[in-house]
Amino acid sequence: MQANWSALDSDPRRLLQLAGEQGGARAANPPRPRNSLLRGLANWGGGRLISAAMLLLASWAIWTVHRAPAWHVHWVEVVGCTLISPEQVVGAAGLADAWSVELEPVTVAERVRTVPGVRTAQAEVWLPNHVRITVSEERPVAVLQEADGQLWVTERGQLLCPFGKVDHLPVLALPSGNWPGESMPAEVINGLSAMAAAFPGQSEFQYDPMKGFMIKDNRGYPVYLGNASELARQLAVAAALDKQLRAKGQVPQFVDLRTVAGAYYR
């Protein structure tokens, strides 16, 4: 038995094989590091202390910026106002002592669009304290004279309280009462424009919601023209009819030319 072990131990290849098997066993089961309880607590608490410190630092920075006057709105630039006062736009925007960091441009623009006469509005916030508001205005094309006062008629037919001063607007005067609606049809606005072009020395035009535009013949009777959609033909027919009536010595109560084909007088 002793001879066999000696022979085995004297074989170099067998010794290397045994050494490799022992080394592989040790590598498959490496020693586990020993972590102490104190080290674990230190790692756990240290990470949370860092997070808390960063949170406190961020809160302090926000608080400092919020209190700093440099980050509150100091300069409001208003572009596009010709009839509306810039002060009215700024007041509607709600920017008094506003913190520029929390301003929402969309919200500011929505507030400005509530101002009478503002058609579109856009707001831009430039840090630290500059706000720019760009507006476009409704364009008045006529004045509507009602029993209760005057309204502006815009190119889109809106009826608005006057929000500025515009000279030489044609006046659409109602014989009584107020306009039956909240807007004016485009055909009425176009008719008023045609009337103003046909009678350049006249600034006020009578309009009856039922019979349309009305002019008076030099003999005093009214001529109703509807929306004056065929004004040139209507005036030509009115002149020819008046000539015939004069020849007969007749003075009608009125002439209705709301449609040329259906013209009649009484």
Rank of each mutant, 00 (worst) to 15 (best):
N4Y: 15
W5Q: 01
W5H: 08
D9N: 14
S10M: 06
D11P: 05
R13V: 15
Q17A: 12
G20A: 04
G23M: 14
G24C: 06
R26M: 07
N29I: 03
P30T: 01
P33W: 02
P33I: 11
N35R: 12
L37E: 05
L38G: 13
G47I: 03
I50R: 12
M54Y: 15
A61F: 10
A61E: 03
W63M: 08
V65E: 08
H66K: 10
A68P: 08
W75M: 09
W75F: 11
V76Y: 00
E77Y: 01
V79T: 14
G80M: 02
P86I: 09
P86S: 01
E87H: 15
E87G: 10
Q88Y: 02
V89P: 06
V90H: 04
G91E: 07
P105R: 02
A109E: 07
R111H: 04
R111I: 07
R119H: 07
T120R: 05
T120E: 12
A121W: 02
P128Y: 11
P128F: 11
V135Q: 09
E137N: 03
R139C: 00
R139H: 11
R139E: 11
A142M: 05
Q145L: 12
E146Y: 01
A147W: 11
D148P: 08
Q150F: 03
T154W: 06
T154R: 01
E155M: 01
C161E: 14
P162T: 01
G164E: 05
K165I: 04
V171I: 14
L174V: 10
W179P: 02
G181S: 05
G181C: 13
I189M: 04
N190T: 15
L192Q: 01
A196I: 05
A197Y: 02
Q202A: 13
S203N: 14
Q206C: 13
F213Y: 04
F213W: 07
I215F: 14
I215A: 00
N218F: 05
Y221R: 00
N227R: 03
E230Q: 15
A239S: 10
A240T: 06
L241S: 12
L241R: 13
D242E: 10
R246Y: 03
R246D: 10
V251A: 00
V251L: 09
V260E: 11
Y265N: 15
R266W: 10
